[in-house]
Design a binder for these strands. Structure first.
Lengths: 137, 137
DNA sequence: CTACACCTTAGAGCCGACTCTAGGTCAAGG
DNA sequence: CCTTGACCTAGAGTCGGCTCTAAGGTGTAG
């Protein structure tokens, strides 16, 4: 099974422009047929999907390029590949912890607003500051 | 307690450039003293920290600006404020679910590489594809 | 044979979010 | 007095990641 650029674009939710851009960057370089049309193989598709997942968790295209180059080098550098994956994994875990922390803050803020709207509470410290400032000016 | 730009920069881990940029964008506008030097108040600091948290979970400066304008408008629009927070919260939760999914994928990939390095396993499908392709060229 | 969808290129433009530069002001300490 | 260091301005530049344009080629159906 092979794909032309429009087909792969639909499958991966990347635009054709983006796929061509990735090719320019050396990140995803398909073969060409006799008419010079890009022909993406099954493993090109799998790699494209991997790209989507990884950039979706914040890996840069630059790092993905490094990963790809490592993997395609002849010097079976699996330790380095694994190291990159583990490093990225740790970044994602750290990000998730930060997200969770900020979710907690948002939930508190939301709860405070809702209490306030019910006339049962006070707005939080920060909002009181703002109010005071406004009434001063 | 008030802060000059250099102090606030240290406290928030934003650069002075960034703080001036935020002011240009109307996102964080301190008062000035007689010498035209920026004087950040305690609630400016709290707001700056809120900005850091929210942009850290992917809220755009544009949306933060909207939030700020809403909050400072006279038409106590708490429903809208809460709606923005809830929308953002849901985005963050969705992002976390995606992250978790991709973490699982990474963990599988890492496990596979490690098995392979121990000589006890096979590289996964995708890597076999790559190998075959390489030996063909 | 021509209309149409789909593909090609090089290169320019855009966007968000900074990041930096050049040149200037001001207050305190030696 | 003079230097140092923190501050000020307007505006230009950078960066990652697209996104689009113009002008043209290809291949298949009616």
């Amino acid at each position: 099974m092979t794909y032309r650029i429009g087909e792969l674009a639909k499958l991966t939710d990347l635009s054709e422009h983006t796929l061509r851009f990735y090719e320019k960057e050396g990140l995803l370089v398909p073969k060409r047929n006799v008419s010079n049309v890009r022909v993406y193989s099954e493993d090109d598709r799998l790699w494209a999907e991997f790209i989507v997942h990884m950039k979706g968790t914040g890996m840069s295209l630059e790092d993905l390029k490094k990963y790809k180059d490592l993997r395609e080098s002849d010097s079976d550098n699996y330790e380095e590949l694994v190291a990159i994956l583990i490093r990225h994994k740790e970044n994602v875990e750290a990000k998730m912890a930060e997200y969770q922390h900020n979710l907690d803050l948002m939930n508190k803020k939301i709860a405070m607003y809702e209490q306030y709207m019910d006339g049962q509470g006070e707005k939080d410290l920060y909002d009181r500051f703002v109010k005071e400032k406004r009434t001063q000016n």
